[in-house]
Design a binder for these strands. Sequence first.
DNA 1: CATTACCTGCAA
DNA 2: TTGCAGGTAATG
Length: 271
Amino acid sequence: MPELPEVETTAVALAADVLGRRILAVEKLDHPPMIEDLDPSTFAARVRGRRIEAVTRRAKWILIRLDEGLTLAVHLRMTGILRAAPASEAPDTHTHLVLGLDDGSRIFFRDSRKFGRVRLLDAAGLAQLDAAHGIEPLSEAFSAEALEAILHGRRTRLKPLLLDQTQVAGIGNIYADEALHEARLHPLRPADSLEPDEVKRLHQSVRSVLERGVRRKARYWDGPVRAHEDFDEFAVYDRAGEPCKTCGTAIARITVAQRGTHFCPGCQPER
DNA sequence: CATTACCTGCAA
DNA sequence: TTGCAGGTAATG
C-alpha cells in the first residue's frame, strides 16, 4: 500500500522521466469519478498544453506542478500506480488515466480498485491541500518537541494518531505498526500517557522506519531487491503468529480503529 | 468518536 | 462464495 516512502519514490521516479515535458492530450479517462470536482472534458481542456515544471510530494499526494499556476495532485490511495510509460506500451484495462506527452511517452495512472483520485488545483487549492495536512515526519520541523506537542493533551490511542493525516502526514497502516514496534510502544497507549523518553523513541522510530522505507523503495525502483531483503522488509506487519525477531514472542494482530494492527506483546507491553 | 462507502483481487 | 485488505471522505 502506498504510504510516504512509496509516494516519495514514485514522485522522484516520475520527475526523472517527465520533467519539462508538455502534456498534449488526455488520451484515456474511463473512470470520471477519479477526477475530483471537474467533468472529464473540462479537465482535459485545462490540462492540454501545460508544461510539467516539477514533481514533488506532500503527505501521500503526488504534486505535478504545471505552468500557468496549476498543480495536478494525484493520490494513489490503496492500489494506484503512477508512472511514465514509453510510447510503445499500451495501457491495460486497469489504467484509467493516460496523459500523452510531447516526446511520445505517456503518464499512466493505473488503479485496479479505482480508489485513486486526481485534483487539478490552482494556487489557492494547493494551499488548501497543504493546510489540510500535518507536519512532514522527514522534515527538519519534525523534532521530538514537535511530536510532544502533537501528543500533548490528546487522549487518542497512538495507532489512530499516527494514521491521522492532519497531525503527522504520510504514515499509513504498515509504517505505523513498524514505528510503534521499533519504539516498543503498545498501539493502544493513550497519546498523552508517554514519558519523555518514550516520546523520543517514537520520534526516532517514525523517522527511521520511513527513511529506511524510502531507501528500500528507491533501491527497488532501480532493480530487483535481494530475496532476503524482501523477506525482512517488515518486523511486525503481516507477521501475526510469527516469532518476534527481538524476543521470540508471537506477533499479535488486533483491530484498532478498524485497521489491522500488528505488534509484539513481549516488546510492546500494554503498560 | 465510530461506521460506512468507495472498488477489486485474492485468500480462506 | 464469502470476506478481508486499507486511505480517506462522508455520514450517524
